[in-house]
């Protein structure tokens, strides 16, 4: 199965245009009942609906056609506390394919948190599709946290349509799954529309990540910001493909992309393809990408203060992730994420 194509191809020999997956055993979908929804209010509702289809411009690609959860989130007011949708995998709820649509009406403001957790008993399968529509002046913060176990599969497609002066900002935490394939696409349409994605990923064992983020800047004065921080231990491997595409008409648009990967083992492997595509003159695009191990000087400094090497490494990783973690207001969730770092880098 060939998934997660980049918008523009490069040499086949570089092995990054897409990802070929053979080994996923496709599950048969049965009802998934471990869904917890909290934080609903008068102007922010979650409706479990009949099946609906989502059409994606990019997306990971549908590994299974069917779905066993369909949710529609409607936001019409300004909400200060978030809505939280939690999916917990266990023996009885081993496969999930969900479609979620978030519609933010004009001037609406809200945070939507979507969490995926699992026990460590089994290999679970998850295919997620999330579609966010932000109408004029709406501001939506989406937090997607993948804390599945490291033997599961996680395939996540996210697509956003953003109108005039609206913004859709993501915080993505990808720590879980043996195969984590993630696709994020923002279609930034309206004048002064903006979008951002702030991601941390952590790989250990033989985890593999294929992350493909795409932003189309179409409206005047639009803005996109991609900040991706990762750490890879053991034999973990990641592909990061980030594309900022300045389409015709995106005058005075600004796009920034920063990708940085800490390599914590000499067998870890990081491949990055940070693309800037530009068909408009008066724009500003920047990308920066870096990788390497933790500077031995800083490690030494921390250890001189009584930390073991393992603890020093954890400290540096947490510090790297801090700027992304800060965007999560829920302190309990932050703690949960931090303790997962301790667990994985044991």
């Amino acid at each position: 199965m060939i998934l997660n194509n980049t918008p523009v191809r490069t040499s086949k020999n570089f092995n990054i245009n897409n990802i070929k997956i053979d080994e996923i055993a496709l599950p048969t979908l049965v009802p998934f009942s471990n869904v917890k929804i909290s934080g609903e209010t008068d102007t922010m509702t979650v409706e479990k609906t009949k099946k609906f289809e989502l059409h994606f411009t990019y997306g990971v690609g549908n590994v299974i056609e069917d779905c066993n959860q369909c949710l529609r989130v409607q936001v019409s007011g300004k909400e200060s506390s978030p809505i939280k949708i939690e999916f917990d995998f266990d023996q009885e709820n081993a496969a999930l394919a969900e479609n979620i649509e978030v519609i933010a009406n004009e001037n609406a403001e809200a945070t939507v948190m979507i969490l995926y957790r699992s026990d460590k008993e089994k290999t679970y399968f998850h295919q997620g599709a999330l579609h966010v529509i932000a109408k004029k002046n709406a501001k939506i913060h989406v937090i997607v946290v993948n804390l599945l176990n490291v033997s599961s599969q996680h395939l996540m497609s996210m697509e956003n349509e953003i109108d005039e002066n609206a913004s859709v900002d993501y915080t993505i935490v990808d720590f879980g799954a043996k195969t984590c394939i993630s696709n994020w696409y923002s279609n930034i349409l309206g004048e002064k529309a903006a979008s951002s994605v702030n991601t941390i990923y952590l790989g250990s064992d033989e985890q593999f990540f294929d992350i493909n983020y795409i932003a189309h800047l179409r409206g005047e004065k639009t803005n996109v910001n991609m900040e991706v921080q990762g750490a890879l231990a053991d034999k973990a491997k990641k592909h990061f493909k980030g594309t900022i595409d300045f389409k015709k008409g995106s005058k005075k648009a600004v796009g920034n992309e920063n990708e940085s990967c800490l390599l914590l083992s000499d067998e870890a492997r990081s491949i990055a393809l940070p693309m800037l595509l530009c068909s408009e003159e008066d724009v500003e695009g920047n990308h920066a990408s870096s990788s390497g191990k933790i500077d031995t000087k800083s490690l030494f400094y921390i250890m001189s203060r009584g930390f073991s090497e393992k603890d020093a490494i954890k400290l540096v990783v947490k510090a790297r992730f801090e700027c992304v973690l800060q965007t999560i207001e829920d302190w309990q969730l932050r703690e949960e994420i931090l303790s997962r770092i301790d667990e994985e880098l044991l």
């Binding site: 491949i271 990055a272 800037l276 870096s290 990788s291």
Partner: peptide
């Protein structure tokens, strides 16, 4: 700008910057 950066070991200092 379509750069592929393939880093297969940890003891490296790699940086890439691009501007349009």
């Amino acid at each position: 700008t379509i750069p592929v950066n393939d880093i297969e070991t940890d003891d490296v200092i790699f940086s890439h910057e691009a501007k349009i």
